[in-house]
Design a protein around this nucleic acid. Sequence first.
DNA 1: ACCTCACATTGAACTTTTTCGATAGGTTAA
DNA 2: TTAACCTATCGAAAAAGTTCAATGTGAGGT
Lengths: 103, 103
Amino acid sequence: MDKIYIDASRVFKALGDPRRAMIVDMLSCGELCACKILEKFDISQSTLSHHMKLLCECGLVVGRNEGKRTYYSHSAEGIAKTKQFFCDITSDKENCICRRNKF
Amino acid sequence: MDKIYIDASRVFKALGDPRRAMIVDMLSCGELCACKILEKFDISQSTLSHHMKLLCECGLVVGRNEGKRTYYSHSAEGIAKTKQFFCDITSDKENCICRRNKF
DNA sequence: ACCTCACATTGAACTTTTTCGATAGGTTAA
DNA sequence: TTAACCTATCGAAAAAGTTCAATGTGAGGT
């Protein structure tokens, strides 16, 4: 299995949870600290921390520490890469010019 | 939890498996019958059938029966919807004009 | 120094997903 | 009508993901 599929799948897996997809949407309005995000969900603090970790590890979100708070925001690079990958695997390739595989 | 996140997350969850992401990529060269897809993976036939079912159920892929074979191909509508959703939740919204939520 | 606050980590229970072998259903070929 | 072929479904086992309470960590405030 090509590493490129595994890396991209990690991002999609992260977005595969409705709460995490909603968190990414929330961050489109700008960075938010964890406590603000937590207010919007009926989950424990440790659960949110786990979700944020996954979003950061897949490269879609970045965290920034300021004092005792952590602010999260979109990672423009991670988002661009994911968008590109999605377009790559979903756009029709004439004459079967598959860049990743030869089928 | 808004239904729109749940529906979109189902697609991302489907793409969250590297094999399924690879299958979607394979289909960008045009429709393929299940047996051709199966050749490319070291998995059982029933496992592939399960993967294809998930890809179809989330709306990203469509199946077509012809004789004893089943041909799978991209669903242009499902792909367009998913792309739109991804753009919605990842594009910066000035002045916090969040369409889905008010944060 | 001590306490509180914000967040991360750990460990365990629970749920979901993945996978395969076995089997069923429908199609084509002999 | 058999038999072979292709795919879907079922049931069970294994793997992975989710969640929370408890605890750890590190920054500020008293």
